[in-house]
Design a protein around this nucleic acid. Structure first.
Lengths: 184, 184
DNA sequence: CGTAGCATGTAAGTTGTTACATGATTCG
DNA sequence: CGAATCATGTAACAACTTACATGCTACG
């Protein structure tokens, strides 16, 4: 059996304050976006289900001249369930890397193709590092002295460690590939 | 639309030689296992579909006193499709980390819970590094001077870079957490 | 007047996971 | 004689993605 992790992610965000589905998407993008992503197609149905299960409470906000908002609040039951989930050990992640698959079977095409794949990855890593930097600045700015801030920074660190390691790998492999291409 | 990546993973492995579904599972575990995992529930139906699509050809092997084997061979059409796929740029991965989610919302429980999560992760990283070491040795031994060997080693490097970076992150965060716990 | 942002959702399709089901042989 | 390994598969479910569908406001 699987615990529906998307739902807990949403509940976690709702623990920071009441929000609409739209808000959740916006907030998730920069806060947990580098390790967890949800689309609207996942968010709206999940919220409905959470409401049915009594984990969240919904309230409709009618604002003159703007679209209606449905604001969700985490209930006491929801908070309890969330805290219980936080204590359960995380399942090991199932790895799935299309890029590595294409590197692994790279010998079936030419080394140039593999080089291109890795160059693209390198660019992506650099972009990722930029984004993490911006997010870190934003957390420092907006996070104030929120008690959970140290934990937020830890996940940011994770992203930075990974992106840097990937960047290094890319650079090293590009060197390798040059050697291979030359020796042919 | 999505290109079915599982199928290409299987086709890639079949490019190394004809194999049964069972063989594919065994080979995949140590060869691409650290970045790609398939279960039988995925393998057998995929092979059937690949056969229908003419990407692979099947042949039944009857061995006295042992279970029947269905051996699959990559067809010319299959190889062509595989090579075409190898040239298509890899989609950026969708990140999903239950661990980081539990760290991010760690403030909702106690710091000890987060510490436990990270300690478990650290152990997993060390185990992973051991396995990668063993795999590297195995590739060196069994890979001979296979032309694709350099590419195989690149994916192994990736695993090593990542596992080491994760290990480091865990250690650094455990130090951080000690500081947090003490200051309370 | 067009585009971007705010705001909510559904439907269909694909994938992936888990549990179930079977049965022979070999090794300790 | 029990466990592990070889060997193949199905059914049910859960999850995820994508495309579709709508409509208002603010801004340039």
């Amino acid at each position: 059996m699987k615990t529906n992790q998307s739902q807990f992610a949403l509940m976690g965000l709702l623990s920071l304050g009441e929000m609409s589905g739209y808000d959740l998407k916006q907030l998730s993008e920069w806060s947990v976006g580098h390790f967890w992503r949800e689309g609207y197609g996942q968010i709206y149905p999940s919220l409905k289900r959470l409401a049915v299960d009594g984990m969240v409470k919904k309230r409709t906000e009618r604002n003159a001249g703007r679209p209606e908002r449905i604001v969700y609040t985490l209930t006491a039951a929801g908070k309890k369930a969330l805290q219980a989930w936080l204590k359960v050990r995380a399942e090991p992640e199932v790895p799935r890397s299309e890029l590595l698959l294409k590197v692994f079977f790279g010998g079936l095409t030419d080394a140039d193709t593999v080089t291109e794949h890795i160059e693209r990855k390198l660019t992506a890593c650099e972009k990722e590092l930029e984004e993490l930097k911006a997010t870190r600045a934003r957390v420092e700015r907006e996070g104030g002295r929120h008690p959970q801030k140290p934990f937020w920074l830890m996940t940011l660190s994770y992203g930075e460690y990974m992106a840097k390691a990937q960047e290094e790998w890319c650079k090293d492999m590009l060197k390798e590939l040059k050697k291979i291409t030359k020796s042919r």
